[in-house]
Design a protein around this nucleic acid. Structure first.
Length: 451
DNA sequence: GCCTACGGGAGTGACTTTCC
DNA sequence: GGAAAGTCACTCCCGTAGGC
């Protein structure tokens, strides 16, 4: 049996839409149940919601959209809501909402996008749903998927959204379909707010598409197909198909697509040459661009939606890569190997690079860039006392210290080189340091230049 | 106007992780 | 192994806002 995921204070506050302090106050007053792991407070969302319902309190009822324009309503925060958050720039192309927000070399190489959302809530108003997802909706007289009433929305970047309601079997049920183009420009917070709202309304997700983009050219679609042919694909998918794309009108090649699984199944993977596809539309794409797009339906979509509702962006991305790998893994094995051996065979190098890169991409972005001043401060505060000791100790001494420093230079890595001042020639610097004879002590190293 | 509840900021302490 | 940085929980004070 799998353990139920528990939320920490921060996560619970985020899910309930209240501050961390409110959560802390609530469990200290024993208004909500808390589980302790060492000194960490953990919460079962279901238990918390039951406790809130039993308390008859609406203190934590933060249904999305319940706030009025300037402030709180209905038991939510009574404080004025903070100013609207910065809306990140929409991604290039019609590729669904991409995150992270900042474009750096790393995030340009690895991005994660949510491409399609389908969800149903048993009891909601259409107006509330429209407010939640945004956009301009117009009535569609034809209805939609058996729902008596329907609405359509076209996004500024294209794409189609549909809302259905008024089904005879469930008049208050609302069904929503949002295509990838319509989701372009959504922030992670928006996706999370929708996911939380769906679960708060006891609803469920019917489909979620997630795409992982490799812009660094780790591997192309044909090579992935070759790995499948070679039996290196460890997966529950039974069939795969390689499709050469061709635009009938222009005759332009739209790139190769490798499909895995059945379109009707609850997991369907497409790996395709996004660069070629974009270029066939006349969009200039620099460098390689391979998209790994997974389509989850029903129970699997529900699981991904639940993760989306509780995980922050930093944790959602590694989670998604992990779920990708439960569906498909590429290992150094053959089709003839014993199934047990296949599952434990070492990962193929390109697959390792691909999945690790996709997991790390976001984390690298948030790393603060250190400056030489930071290093100087750190050295002055932390190292100086010990350096002084080494300098005066008879078993170490100044010479030992200098030679150790020179040896250390030989172990410089890219991050060390990154600290060098712009315009400094690396080879000259190394030459100068090697020329710095330990017997001359510190002063020589500071004053001399390499011949 | 008072009470109550909320959230922000500043600060503290215990503990863990990271870096060298 | 030492020190800094980070994490987590917590307290106190204060301003804001709704209900009565």
């Amino acid at each position: 049996m799998r353990m139920k995921a528990l939320l920490n204070v921060k996560e619970l506050a985020s899910v309930l839409g209240v501050s961390v302090k409110s959560v802390q106050r609530a469990y200290r007053r024993r208004e909500i149940p808390v589980h302790w792991l060492c000194r960490m407070a953990l919460f079962d969302l279901d238990e918390v919601r039951r406790a809130m319902a039993l308390n008859g309190s609406r203190r934590f009822d933060t249904s999305v959209g319940s706030h009025d324009k300037d402030g709180a309503a209905g038991g939510a925060s009574r404080r004025r809501q903070p100013a609207a958050r910065r809306v990140p720039k929409p991604p290039d192309g019609k590729t669904g909402a991409q995150f992270p927000e900042e474009d750096t070399e790393e995030t340009m190489s690895w991005t994660c996008s949510l491409g399609w959302l389908r969800f149903t809530v048993p009891n909601a108003s259409v107006e509330e749903t429209m407010r939640l997802v945004g956009g301009d909706w117009v009535p569609d007289e034809k209805g939609f998927l058996g729902y008596g009433r329907g609405w359509m929305c076209r996004g500024s970047a294209g794409g189609l959204g549909r809302i259905g309601s008024g089904a005879k079997r469930a008049p208050l049920e609302v069904h929503v379909d949002l295509s990838q183009e319509l989701l372009s420009g959504w922030t992670y917070d928006q996706f999370q707010a929708v996911a939380q709202w769906v679960f708060m309304k006891q609803g469920h997700f019917g489909r979620i598409d997630v795409a992982l983009d490799d812009r660094s050219g780790v591997i192309d679609v044909e090579a992935v197909y070759d790995a499948v042919v070679a039996g290196q694909c460890v997966s529950h998918f039974r069939k795969s198909q390689l499709i050469e794309g061709l635009d009938v009108g222009s005759g332009e090649e739209t790139g190769t697509t490798l499909c895995m699984g059945s379109r009707q199944s609850d997991t369907y993977l497409r790996i395709y040459d996004k660069a070629a596809q974009q270029q066939s539309k006349g969009i200039v794409v620099e460098g390689p661009w391979v998209r790994w797009e997974m389509e989850w339906k029903d129970e699997r979509a529900q699981a991904v939606g639940l993760a989306l509702s509780v995980l922050d962006q930093d944790r959602f991305q590694p989670y998604i890569v992990g779920v990708f790998r439960t569906a498909v893994d590429f290992r150094d094995c053959t089709r003839e190997d014993d199934p047990k051996d296949r599952y434990h065979a070492p990962l193929l190098a390109w697959w390792k690079v691909l999945t690790e890169g996709m997991q790390r991409a976001k984390l690298d972005v948030v790393k603060a860039v250190k400056k030489i001043e930071d290093v100087k401060q750190w050295a002055a505060k932390s190292l100086a006392p010990m350096l002084g000791l080494l300098c005066v100790h008879p078993e170490a001494g100044e010479r030992w210290l200098v030679s150790t420093i020179i040896e250390g230079v030989e172990r410089w890595r890219p991050k060390h080189y990154a600290f060098l001042a712009s315009g400094q020639d690396v080879q000259q610097v190394l030459k100068k340091v090697r020329w710095w004879k330990p017997t001359d002590g510190f002063a020589a190293g500071c004053a001399s230049t390499a011949p």
